[in-house]
Design a protein around this nucleic acid. Sequence first.
DNA 1: GTGAAAGCGCTAACAC
DNA 2: GTGTTAGCGCTTTCAC
Lengths: 343, 343
Amino acid sequence: MDTASSPRTPTLEDVAERAGVSRSVASRAINNVGNVSDTKRAAVHRAVRELGYVPNPSARALATNRVGAVVLAVATDEPGIFADAFFAQVIYGISVALERTDVTLTLVLAGRPEGAAKLRQIVRSRRADGIMLMNLHGDDPLAKLAEQTTMPVVFGGRPLGAEPQWYVDTDNRSGARLATEHLVEAGYRRIATITGQLSLDVAEARYRGYRDAMAVAELPAHRVEHADFSEAGGAAAMARLLEAHPDLDAVFAASDNMAAGALRTLRAWGRAVPDEVGVVGFDDLPTALHTDPQLTTVRQPIEALGAEMARMLLSILDGVRPTPLILPARLVVRGSTRPAADR
Amino acid sequence: MDTASSPRTPTLEDVAERAGVSRSVASRAINNVGNVSDTKRAAVHRAVRELGYVPNPSARALATNRVGAVVLAVATDEPGIFADAFFAQVIYGISVALERTDVTLTLVLAGRPEGAAKLRQIVRSRRADGIMLMNLHGDDPLAKLAEQTTMPVVFGGRPLGAEPQWYVDTDNRSGARLATEHLVEAGYRRIATITGQLSLDVAEARYRGYRDAMAVAELPAHRVEHADFSEAGGAAAMARLLEAHPDLDAVFAASDNMAAGALRTLRAWGRAVPDEVGVVGFDDLPTALHTDPQLTTVRQPIEALGAEMARMLLSILDGVRPTPLILPARLVVRGSTRPAADR
DNA sequence: GTGAAAGCGCTAACAC
DNA sequence: GTGTTAGCGCTTTCAC
């Protein structure tokens, strides 16, 4: 039959030989680059198919200085935060955006020092072509990563107090304003807020949006407690709010998880939602549907956030210089708020 | 100062030159392999430090046929399932186990056909040294992946009706038995169950555990509905159960999410939990703490599952032939069940 | 349009 | 112990 070729995985050389061309022609044909006659091109492609040839990524990477991988780094310390459905949705979006390319996704949890070190190691050894970086707290030294490397970095959300060259973010400030305006329009007046850690830009922006709306409505915005975006944190903050401001009649929580915690506390305190207290969350996670009552919230397009980050990074790698992208947030009204007329 | 060396990233050759040794000695010193005198070893390490040398992973991979990456493939179609806190915890466990190695984690969502194709592509081109594969349904062709490649595959959970060479799994059957026994001991008698998709081994095993316990208690085990591990699915299944078996006084749901859905339906139907109906879940996700009442459930060590998968894969890559690992599950009693004496 | 040949940066025999 | 050398499999000038 055939010359007894060993059953090792075929190389470009095997393809070239079988197609009766040189290695350089085979390479050009495979990568659709340079000039190759149609005859030879076809012969090469047939050989590729027959042999089941797959290029060796390491060899290619070595020759081209492109590894065909991007990393998603999530700067989160505790599993609790990462376990949030939020990141899963981001990852899903990225994954779909990468599916049709032959770029691979490397995931790094860069919250703990070991993880951050690993990320730096990846960067220094150029094990990836680019980085998507999320969930940076204000003081995180990783925020400076973009300046320390030539590898392109796309931020998911802005690091606090910085305006990176490339990022994708939700319009958090507007979203929070929408949420608060909705409470005002529903006739609530003594509106409190539960913020996330103000070392996160996203928390800061949502707090701003709350104050924007309160200022416009000429309502006092002093009923404020800070938490950490978690359900437990939201529950505790709600309790503090109720103690400090027993007269409050609504609360805007900067995440659905915190809103869920707030609902729990309100129930424990015997405050009826939405009749005595209106509650609005942020994110529109599955959580928002599972609470009782269901949460009025602000939907941010989380999967799209991931997909857009990936797309932005890929375009940068293709030589394009995109501009930052701000995704819109919109209000979703459910049972945890009700117009004054109906209460 | 120095000879005008270009500012490109240093190579092994640069290190060797600076340390005054040959490249092979430098390589041996760096990889702690073969014989190198202490003097030269020290010189090499100093040169490495001074130059900030980092080995080029592609070159190393090309030479050693080891790429220093493992993939986690999750065979999940819909974002909803992946968004489950479960996978996030698994990933966290894997990530921690990998932190101290210089092995990188590649994530592939292999549920959609494009994702599965991508996984196969990774395997064929050997872009990774090994695979962790999770959430396989009974009919998923990926289950055969392990037989089609020499790349080691560690399964997270068993594929239905198969006993792969390497896997890490929770003792789902025992866990489900514990859950059901707990209901029996609490004095519930007309105990129903909501299963996951029986095309998943994990659902099948938990269903078995339920029947085991019911058989031992000599109770009828015909109050059964099937769902898909989701909250919505659990809610719907609970409604079907209540219609078909209005007399039921307890339900074992094969996941916390389904149990949460069941709670929602029970509340809507005006059945008091735990006094009229006892409810037990499975997983001990954060969800279990956020329901009202909190869920009695079966805790499985999810982070450990991820960590053990990673450890198992690494040990295989080190030439060890480990045996499959079954992790224990244990009962966690909370408010959704109550002994008959207290009801 | 095509092919020869020189690397990419590393490791691993093998001879000294 | 140490250095020389031959690859790993690919891309990419550069002549023809």
